[in-house]
């Protein structure tokens, strides 16, 4: 059986969120929403798991902290130059550099996680995407079996969809 993609366009985020909730009752799981701003009602309806960006941030920060301690220790041992009466391996500089690199690689790790999870940069636009979703419209894209298409359309209309587009 063939699959059909149906995109509904809404002028209001609450209607789009209602459409997502109705699709859930139909057991349509392949749902994607577009919005010009983060819409918390839509995100709540879609029940996304906790973003793994936090793990990237944590791993980056841990790596930064390790490098920020290990690398200065290596250089201090490689060139054991005593300055200011400080021990060869002086702890305070390690805290400062470790902290700073933890912040740096934590931020860069989070950025890497965001780009990979959000699939950016994207060289092509998604199917049926409407540029107005970056401006003043909300979109809900449902992918379903063709024999469910009519009930999905009805669902969108009930939620107040202003336009419908389809692609087989």
């Amino acid at each position: 059986m063939s699959q059909v993609r149906i995109l509904a366009s809404f002028g209001d985020g609450a209607n789009a969120a209602r459409a997502v909730a109705l699709l859930r009752t139909l057991d349509v799981d392949d749902v994607l929403a577009y919005s010009p701003t983060p819409d918390h009602a839509i995100l709540a309806e879609l029940q996304r798991d906790v973003s793994p960006v936090r793990l990237f941030t944590l791993v980056g920060a841990g790596l930064g902290c390790f490098l920020g301690v290990a690398f200065p220790v290596y250089t201090m041992l490689d060139l054991p130059l005593i300055t200011g009466g400080k021990p060869t391996i002086s702890i305070p500089p390690l805290v400062v550099i470790g902290f700073t690199l933890a912040m740096l690689l934590g931020a860069l790790g989070g950025l890497t996680g965001f780009l990979s999870m959000a699939r950016l940069p994207a060289l092509s636009r998604p199917v049926l995407y409407d540029p107005r979703f970056s401006d003043d419209r909300f979109g809900v894209l449902a992918t379903c079996e063709s024999d469910h298409a009519e009930s999905v359309r009805a669902c969108f209309r009930d939620a107040g969809a202003e336009e419908l587009k389809e692609q087989l």
Binding site: L32, A33, Y34, S35, P36, T37, P38, D39, I42, L43, L46, R48, S51, V53, R54, T57, F99, T100, M103, G106, A107, G110, L111, G113, F114, L115, M117, A118, R119, L120, P121, A122, L123, S124, R125, P126, Y129, F133, S134
Partner: peptide, 28 residues
């Protein structure tokens, strides 16, 4: 804009990153 389309998945990770960056910037 890196091909940003404002999908719920993108917003979700975006908000997570933005929150972490905000939290990192303060002690930094």
């Amino acid at each position: 804009s890196l091909g940003w389309v404002g999908s719920d998945r993108q917003w979700y990770h975006y908000m997570s990153l933005y929150g972490f960056l905000a939290a990192l910037v303060i002690p930094l």
